[in-house]
Design a protein around this nucleic acid. Structure first.
Length: 266
DNA sequence: CATCATGTTATAAT
DNA sequence: CATTATAACATGAT
């Protein structure tokens, strides 16, 4: 499920474990979420350490452990984090569980598109510090957006917004929400956007990120019906702005929902 | 049984 | 080389 706001929500689910010592790490070592790291090494490295804190960058999370250990998690399509009782029995898709003194921290991912990466060292891993600016970072500027659209000038806007190297944390629903609020057709090419459309694209990207974090990232609240969000999931949705039927089609390889009255092609 | 799913990446093609 | 398009990944819901 996770885009930047959902990821922020899930990150906080492990806050109850901050300061706790990890007595044991339970893994399903052959599962695909460990394809980028060694599950056995992860277990031996992290057992006995304490969880110190965590942060997010787009759809990625980084957990810091005592004495210089860092674990980056991605949730893929179906991953989620939760806290459970300390004697929790891992179920089928609980591929990584930290058994702490008073809680169990659970990473569950049925489709296993999520992943882990371990870094041992006192400082933030360099691959984390060199990530591109987050959308709510002051370094995320109009110029940054202009460059993204220039470099990807022959791609549809929908694909560009899903490009994590330019728009970290934007996923399928946020991209649709941004384009709908900007009144830009998702199939428009990046190279066709300039002037006031570019400014709007930039502003709405930030607005949607902020709104999503407020409503979903805090306590997984329900987005208001004035957003595209609650109307976009199934066929038959009605645009809350125009009252016209929404359209769902594949653009940039992903199901895309937009209002054909509001978002038109030249 | 077939289709679809809030994501990323390896590979091929341009 | 830089950019773009597509298939593949593993599982569950409809």
């Amino acid at each position: 499920m996770p885009e930047l706001a959902e990821v922020e929500y899930y990150r906080k689910q492990w806050d109850t474990g901050v300061g706790e010592r990890i007595r044991a790490v339970a893994v399903h070592p052959d599962k695909r979420i460990f394809r980028e790291c060694n599950a056995a090494q992860l277990v031996t490295e992290l057992e006995g350490r304490s969880l110190c804190g965590s942060l997010t960058h787009g759809k990625q999370m980084l957990f810091e452990f005592s004495d210089g250990a860092w674990l980056r998690l991605r949730l893929g399509m179906t991953g989620n984090l939760s806290a459970a009782n300390k004697d929790y029995e891992p179920s089928k898709h609980d591929h990584l569980v930290f058994e702490c003194d008073s809680v169990a921290l659970v990473f569950n991912d049925s489709r296993q598109f999520g992943s882990c990466r371990l870094h041992i060292g006192k400082e933030l891993p360099s691959w984390w510090s060199s990530l591109p600016p987050q959308i709510l970072d002051p370094r995320f500027t109009l110029e940054h957006c202009r460059e993204a659209l220039r470099r990807r000038s022959r791609s549809p806007l929908k694909s560009i917004l899903l490009d994590q190297s330019w728009f970290p944390g934007i996923g399928n629903w946020m991209a649709d929400e941004i384009l709908w609020r900007t009144a830009l057709h998702p199939a428009l090419l990046g190279g066709s956007i300039r002037g006031s459309a570019l400014k709007s694209f930039f502003n709405k990207t930030i607005e949607v990120a902020r709104d999503a974090l407020e409503v979903i990232g805090t306590d997984w609240g329900t987005p208001p019906t004035s957003w595209l969000f609650p109307h976009r999931w199934n066929d038959g949705g009605i645009c809350p702005s125009t009252g016209e039927p929404l359209v769902r089609e594949t653009i940039g390889g992903r199901t895309t929902c937009y209002c054909p009255t509001l978002q038109t092609l030249p």
